[in-house]
Design a protein around this nucleic acid. Structure first.
Lengths: 237, 237
DNA sequence: CGTTTACTTGAGTAAACTCAACAATTGTGG
DNA sequence: CCACAATTGTTGAGTTTACTCAAGTAAACG
């Protein structure tokens, strides 16, 4: 199996054989994390960063009143806690939403590798810029779309991202999220997500059963969401 | 005057004299942009990136229905369109909210400089990670805070950031934003911003007159916002 | 000094929330 | 493999927050 981190980096920057070797070398083998376990905890300063190899995870923050906001869903190839590599402390937690396997790189090795090879530093930098673009679309989603378009948009994004990782078959893919988790990502309540999801179903746009999402009418779903996939394809110049 | 971009980069990474020289060399002199003019337009692929030297700008996206979401306020030292440097096309526009002066770096020069000097690539990368942290707090703000706490939080953030740039005197600073622009950043309507701002005033937390914001009770404002400044200080390890 | 832009206020409406109960599904120990 | 527990999903009724529309006031600008 090729390293999904390599795939992610090569999507934004050209890597040499030496670059690839370096990544393979510093990237340590798979560890398994159980469902619901935290991979990263807010405030910590871990000695290594984690890369998703398999499964789903969510990045989130908890407010003093106990409410939660998910700021990203993490799929294979995604980096759980890049901030931890270079910033003072992690500003968020990451929880495994399914059983997850992760690889890790020590902080020191990552900093060393990117100091030695500017091509790698550029690759991580550019991957970061793509992540920023995704965060910006989330801000637009939360700020300016109603619940219906908001959910539709998130489903479109997840569909596109999962497709890229090769896990979509006939417009159908595993979506192991509870309605409460969707609500925490969308800035809604689970009750409202439930009702709005029903509307998307009765209108024939999607089907969601047994943790599996089927997109029945991709075009109308995209329209409902005013989804523009450009920000995801974002590959390097 | 020292280059504000250097200040920004040095806040997250140590630069050598050569690094600083390189930045100074590729960074081209000041241009002035008038109030309300676009600095970057969505979909374009500009040949250089722009760095704020003076004034206020906003990064925003427009939806098909004409509504607008501001995803960042840009202050001196901030980079207007880093994504444009390396990604296929800009996914957002940037507009000058006051008269603005900007410097620019050509795409080619930036890519070249960061390829030659990994320390610079790292610095830009790390600056990007700080930007990401700010975007995440905006997501939390939009998703999980009501209008009152939301506005309070934005005011706290702007206060902290402007202080860092040295433009705060006695808890007072210039805030050249209309209520409509605040609304577009906060995912609210200008009418609701107006009423909520009045509440913040009558409760004695802030004063906002003549485009000047005075923080009357920083502690209570921070509490109302559940503001935790950690994500901004975020300096390198 | 007139005109545009920004701010303010009121009244009615709609989207999303809360609380509470219940059904269905999933997971677990015996 | 069943029985029970826990989690997740569904529904109803009432409430609240924020929105819409519309008009009027104040401030900024040429």
């Amino acid at each position: 199996m090729t390293n999904p981190l390599l795939a992610k980096l090569e999507a934004v920057a050209a890597l040499s054989a030496d670059d690839r070797n370096t990544i393979e070398t510093i990237c340590n083998g798979a560890r398994t994390i159980g469902h619901h376990k935290d991979i990263v905890r807010e405030g910590e300063k871990p000695e290594h960063i984690h890369i998703m190899l398999d499964g789903w995870a969510a990045r989130y923050k908890t407010l003093p009143d106990g409410s939660r906001q998910i700021t990203a869903f993490l799929l294979p190839g995604d980096i759980c806690d890049m901030g931890a590599a270079v910033l003072k402390h992690t500003d968020h937690s990451v929880v495994a939403l399914t059983q997850v396997t992760i690889a890790s790189i020590t902080r020191a090795a990552l900093i060393e590798a990117t100091r030695e090879r500017s091509s790698l530093a550029q690759a991580f930098w550019w991957a970061s810029l793509v992540d920023e673009a995704v965060l910006r679309t989330w801000i637009v989603n939360l700020g300016r779309r109603d619940a219906y378009a908001r959910i539709a948009h998130l489903l479109c994004e997840l569909h596109a991202r999962i497709k890229r990782v090769g896990l979509v078959q006939d417009g159908e893919f595993s979506l192991p999220l509870t309605q409460e988790q969707l609500a925490d990502a969308l800035g809604l309540t689970s009750v409202h997500v439930n009702r709005t999801l029903q509307r998307l179903r009765t209108e024939g746009l999607v089907e969601l059963r047994n943790r599996t999402l089927t997109i029945l009418d991709a075009e109308r779903l995209g329209e409902a969401a005013t989804f523009d996939p450009g920000y995801l394809h974002a590959s390097a110049a």
